[in-house]
Amino acid sequence: MRRLHHTSREYDWGSSEDIPRFLRESPDGRPVAEVWMGTHPLGSSTVDADDGELSLASLAGELPFMLKLLAASRPLSIQVHPNAQQAEAGFAGEEEAGVPIDAPHRVYRDAHHKPEMVYALTTFDTLVGFRPTAEILRILTAIESPLAGSLAESLNARPGFSGIVRVVETLLEDKPDVAEIDQIVTSCRDLAAQGIDIKRAYATAVEIAEDHPGDVGVVMSLLLNRLTLQPGEAAFLGAGIIHAHLRGMCLEVMVSSDNVLRAGLTSKHLDPVGLVGCLDKGMSRLARVTPEQFGFSTDVFSPAVEEFALSITQCSRAEPRGAVLPDAPRRIVVCTGGEVELVNEHGDRVRLQRGESVYADGSDGVLHGIGTGELAQAYTPTSETPDAELTDLI
């Protein structure tokens, strides 16, 4: 077992409080948005070594998964992640064009697809996937706005998934002006004040407009489902699912990738053509994840993808020899609460407090957690990993 150290990202949507406090550090006012745990070349973790620190990638090779700690105090960009074929082609194209890997306008920073799973640490709000056609039409027709009326007319003429994608394409190709967006926000505010809201669509648009006034993403939010996860709940987002996280702190476990196609609610590079191209491939899976139990104290969130799974282990004095974690050849274990001593099969011990983490490989064997606290483990599932129950949200 090796203690890990990670890189953090300071994006404008991040929280100045949540991640520093989780890491038991004093907030300094900067918006800390993410902590990356893994071997991605743009932010590889390091491990303690005899002569300082060593890149985790040099010790473990390239891990197929990445674990992120994410904290949002305002909405993230509306975005989509590519599938494997799109990622390979996009990465090859930008490499051939000589676009620097860290260039702000670079879209494909690796050749991997990017399905992901969100595990809520606090109440976590997000927009994920398109609402059903009938629901979108109900939302739009109640809004007093020529723009909303024209979008509803377009969707009436071409209902279903492809029609919704065409509405998105229209909004991105012929962006409405600020006055049109403000008119929609005003109508949404009036409807919400009257107690009229359709699955939080109007309240969400008003909320987003406070952080991103005049942004086309405000209008696009009306097309998306709003999902709230309570602490301990998880959702799986396949590649190609449009989404925009709103607020809260979570763990994200995903394929080790940083490929993001954005369409709004951000100052970063936008790729509306690429985003629509991803959506045109059809809907991927979006589902709540109900874990399977492992042993007495562990929930396994395994969404049946080959690259990653997440286990959550509750450690207590009820198991004096320690709670057993699922075995795996390569894993990242982070303490998400309390204080736990992690013990491998050789009797080596590492004491972890909230926010501290270790890397373990096959030589460590089965791990036990002793103490009172919670351990999250990201790992590649094996043939013995139980598949979690997925309940489709769309």
Score class of each variant (00 low, 15 high):
122 T>S: 15
107 V>T: 12
118 V>P: 04
94 E>H: 12
90 G>K: 03
112 H>P: 05
114 K>E: 09
97 A>K: 10
98 G>W: 14
116 E>I: 06
92 A>E: 01
120 A>V: 01
88 E>Q: 07
92 A>C: 07
89 A>F: 13
106 R>L: 10
88 E>N: 10
109 R>I: 08
101 I>G: 00
109 R>D: 01
125 D>Q: 13
91 F>N: 09
101 I>P: 10
106 R>N: 04
97 A>Y: 09
130 F>I: 02
104 P>K: 13
94 E>R: 14
95 E>S: 10
90 G>V: 09
92 A>Y: 03
101 I>N: 04
130 F>R: 03
117 M>V: 05
109 R>H: 03
116 E>H: 04
114 K>C: 05
130 F>L: 01
104 P>Q: 06
126 T>Y: 05
88 E>T: 13
113 H>E: 09
119 Y>P: 07
126 T>W: 09
95 E>C: 08
87 A>N: 15
122 T>C: 02
96 E>G: 07
129 G>P: 06
99 V>E: 04
104 P>A: 08
111 A>W: 00
126 T>L: 15
125 D>K: 12
122 T>F: 04
128 V>C: 08
95 E>W: 01
89 A>Q: 12
95 E>A: 04
96 E>K: 10
93 G>D: 12
94 E>P: 09
86 Q>Y: 07
88 E>P: 07
85 Q>M: 00
121 L>N: 00
123 T>A: 15
103 A>W: 02
121 L>R: 06
103 A>F: 03
86 Q>V: 04
111 A>Y: 00
98 G>Q: 13
121 L>A: 11
97 A>L: 10
105 H>W: 08
111 A>I: 08
93 G>A: 14
111 A>V: 07
120 A>S: 01
117 M>L: 08
94 E>N: 02
116 E>G: 11
93 G>T: 03
88 E>C: 05
106 R>T: 15
103 A>Q: 11
120 A>C: 04
104 P>R: 02
96 E>R: 15
117 M>I: 08
88 E>K: 15
88 E>G: 14
96 E>F: 05
87 A>K: 01
99 V>A: 08
116 E>F: 10
126 T>I: 04
101 I>Q: 04
92 A>N: 05
91 F>K: 11
100 P>L: 04
94 E>F: 13
129 G>N: 11
90 G>R: 01
86 Q>R: 12
128 V>N: 14
99 V>Q: 01
91 F>W: 13
120 A>L: 01
98 G>N: 02
94 E>C: 15
100 P>M: 03
91 F>M: 11
96 E>W: 02
94 E>Q: 07
119 Y>Q: 12
125 D>H: 12
110 D>K: 05
111 A>M: 03
121 L>W: 04
124 F>D: 00
116 E>V: 11
110 D>G: 11
98 G>M: 09
118 V>R: 01
95 E>R: 15
116 E>D: 08
115 P>Y: 13
118 V>G: 12
124 F>I: 02
95 E>L: 01
121 L>G: 07
107 V>M: 15
106 R>A: 14
108 Y>H: 02
108 Y>D: 13
115 P>S: 09
85 Q>S: 03
85 Q>T: 13
129 G>H: 06
127 L>K: 00
90 G>F: 04
